[in-house]
Every structure is written in structure tokens, then in C-alpha cells.
Amino acid sequence: MDTATEGTTLPADIAAEAERHDLLTLGIEEEYLLVDAAEPRAVEAVDDVFAELPEEIRGGVQHEYYRSQIEVASPPRLDLADLRAEMTRLRSGVAAAAERAGARLVAVGTGPAAGPNLRIVDKPRYHRMRDRFGDLSPGQGMCGTHVHVSIPDPETGVKVLNHLRPWLPVLQAAAANSPLFAGRDTGYASWRSMMWERWPTVGPTPYLRSHEHYLTLISDLEASGAMLDEGMLYWYARLSANYPTVEIRLGDVTPTLDDAMLLTALARGLVATLLREVRDGIEAPDVEHPLLMAAHWRAAHDGLEGLNIDMATREPRPAWRLMRQLFDYVRPELERHGDLETTTVLMGRLRAGGTGGARQRAMLARGASVADVVDELARLTKATEPDR
């Protein structure tokens, strides 16, 4: 829910190589649901899972808001293959620990199966959040993906945030992975997105005049009571409070590492492309906030399988066409960072197989049960090889 652990100090050799070639580093955080070993319902197993974690991955794993959730955070990396190796290690390690604790690790936006409301983790900050904001997120937990991309300084980072605003609904649509909630199809590709928007600071990043303006808004929001601290600034993109990165809150956690690596690479390509525009003095388009809200709603409702809004024309277009437009836009930076070949393959796999949400619905259409869907999600979560 908030990113207390956003990575580690960048190793000197990676930092030197990134600076020498003017490349951006990246990292990823993923939140997961813990479900019963035999049934599809979420379980309060996080403490038991922590007790089973091997020492070598403990530094990359942390609690989340509910006792039925767990989170991992990669160290910053320059090479996408290295990042995938780190996430493979974390996913497989936590999945194995969950199985030893009598549970399963599931990468899904929110609980697909019915079950009782579960307790929050026993931390003072989480109790303060519950006392202040009440029952804004009942159920089993909401699990998302956050990508961190390096920036040179906060002032430049704020300009990048302005340029990011029109592109984020497409990335949210591509991450859609929570059509089911409490045993039923919600009619949304990402029901987690709709639940998440009940928190007072969730939404598109506003158009920012400067880093000072950014800090003033944070101070004003804290004073208003809408958030306890900067960690509760839940805009879809923000500056990290602890590291020199832009954090893009992509949407649902994705079921496969293929999907996660695709979106991570696109996020870096996008930030790198926008950094060049900032350096060239190109002003960010000041897209109207209601239009952005509509585009994010459309992303949650349709995923990539329906429509979204082309911010240049303000007209609905097929979401996959906008996804391809994003890919073409960032292609030079994908190539410069060494990600083009991998990203091209992963785009093809996503196009062929669909988003996590579309795949869940396809299973149900073939006669599968919610329990079958959860079984498949658990399998995909711990898989280390491409599934498609």
C-alpha cells in the first residue's frame, strides 16, 4: 500500500555504467495475495510465510497492509535480464516459503474467491491508517505493481511526471488482472482499481508547476488529513521520497514475469523518452483532469480488450492500438537500453494471450471454476519460464 522498501543503494559498477552511457536504472515492487493451500480463499498467513523465508531473500520481502498479503522489492538494475533474474529469485523463493507455511502465493489484483474480511498487519502505522480512514479497503487485500525509474534530480522528475500523465491509462489497462471479486465477475477488467480509488489521494498526478509546488501539495494534503504522510501519496506516478526515481504505480500485479518485465521495460522506455523531451524544452500537454479520470476508469473497465481514450484526439480508440502507439513512441529508447528484442517478443505474447484479466475470463468461459482460476494463477506466479 505504501512503499517503505523501494530498493537498495545502487551498486557502484551499475551507477558508473548508467552514467557513462546515459542510461536509466529500474526496479520493481510486486504485492501478492496469500491463499489457502487447498481452497481459493485468502488466508492470514504472512507471519508464517516470513518464518519460512530463506535468509538470502529476506531483505527484499516485506509486509503489506493485510495479513493475507506480502510484498517483494527488487534492487535497482540496469539490465532487464538481471532484473528478471532478481524477480525470479524473489517470486520463487516466496512461493516456496508460502507452500511450506501451508499457503500459496498468487499474483492477482484482489481476492477472486469469497471469504471473510481479514485483519490488517499489527503495525502502529497501519492501525493509524485504519483509525483515520476506516473500512476503505475491506476484504482480502489489493495487490499492485510499482516500477521505479531513475531520474537526474527532483525538478526534472516533476517535469517527467507532467509528461507521463497521458500515457498511464494504457499501462494500467495492460496490467488489468482482477475481474473477479468474492466469487463473481465484477464486469471490470481491474476491480482492484475501482476499490483502490476510494482512498482520498488516489488518482492521476496533477499538473505540477515545479518541485516546490509538488512539496506544497504534499504538505497541504497532510494538513488536510487526507493522508498521514508522504507514503500515502497514491498518485499514479510520484517521486520517491527516499531514492532518485520516478515511481509509476502501474495497476494490478500481473500473473506472469513476462507481463511484469514487459510493463517495466515500457515504463523505462517511456521515462527515457520523456526525459529527452524535457531536455529539448518540449512542454507537457496539460490534459484535463476529468479526461484522465475517464481514461483510467476505461482502463479499469475494459483492460486492453476494449477501448481507451486517445489523449491527442480525445476520442475512444481500441486500447491495443494505443498500446502499440506507446511501443512505437518509446522504441528508440527500448533499443538504446537493450530492451527492444525482449520487449517485442513479450508484446507478441501479451497480444496472443491477453491480459491476466482476459485470461481469467477465458477460463471461466470454458467452464472453469473460480477455484480453477486461482490454481492457475498460483501456477503462473511461481513459474520461472515463459508460459505462452
Rank of each mutant, 00 (worst) to 15 (best):
M87A: 11
A267R: 03
A295N: 09
P116G: 13
A299S: 06
A241V: 09
G93Q: 04
L161G: 00
A260N: 06
Y188S: 15
E277Y: 03
P244K: 03
A107S: 14
M347G: 02
F181L: 14
G303Y: 08
D13E: 09
A365G: 11
A81Q: 10
L250G: 00
Q325S: 14
E86R: 12
Y214P: 00
G157W: 02
A81N: 12
D328C: 09
G141A: 09
P124M: 07
L26Q: 04
A101F: 07
L307V: 09
G7P: 04
Y207R: 07
T256N: 02
D372M: 01
E64L: 04
V330T: 01
T313M: 07
L307T: 05
T88K: 02
I218T: 12
H296Y: 11
V253E: 01
A81I: 10
L350I: 05
P166L: 02
M261D: 02
G115M: 08
G356K: 05
L53A: 11
R132G: 14
V374I: 15
A173R: 00
L90F: 03
E222F: 01
Y32Q: 05
T273G: 05
N117H: 10
Q69V: 03
S193R: 01
L180I: 11
T245V: 07
T205E: 03
R279F: 12
V287K: 07
R104H: 03
G338K: 04
L24S: 06
S369E: 12
I282S: 15
G251F: 00
I151C: 03
A101N: 02
W320Y: 11
A113Y: 04
A312V: 15
H21C: 14
P138T: 14
D286M: 06
N162E: 08
S240N: 08
G357R: 04
R77C: 10
V147D: 01
G7E: 03
T88A: 07
H213V: 05
A371T: 10
I282W: 15
T110S: 09
A241I: 12
D259E: 06
P54T: 14
T145C: 14
D280S: 12
K123C: 09
P154N: 13
I309K: 02
E86N: 10
H289R: 13
L217R: 10
A260D: 09
D13W: 07
R349I: 09
E315M: 10
Y236K: 03
S193M: 05
R249H: 10
P255L: 05
R238S: 05
R366W: 11
Q62R: 15
E86D: 14
C143Y: 00
A223P: 06
R132H: 08
A173K: 00
H301D: 07
V287T: 10
D185T: 12
D220C: 14
G269Y: 02
T9R: 08
I151T: 02
D135H: 13
V94W: 00
G27D: 02
L215R: 06
I57P: 03
A73I: 12
P40V: 01
L23H: 03
M363S: 08
A98Q: 05
A51P: 03
E212G: 15
E30Q: 13
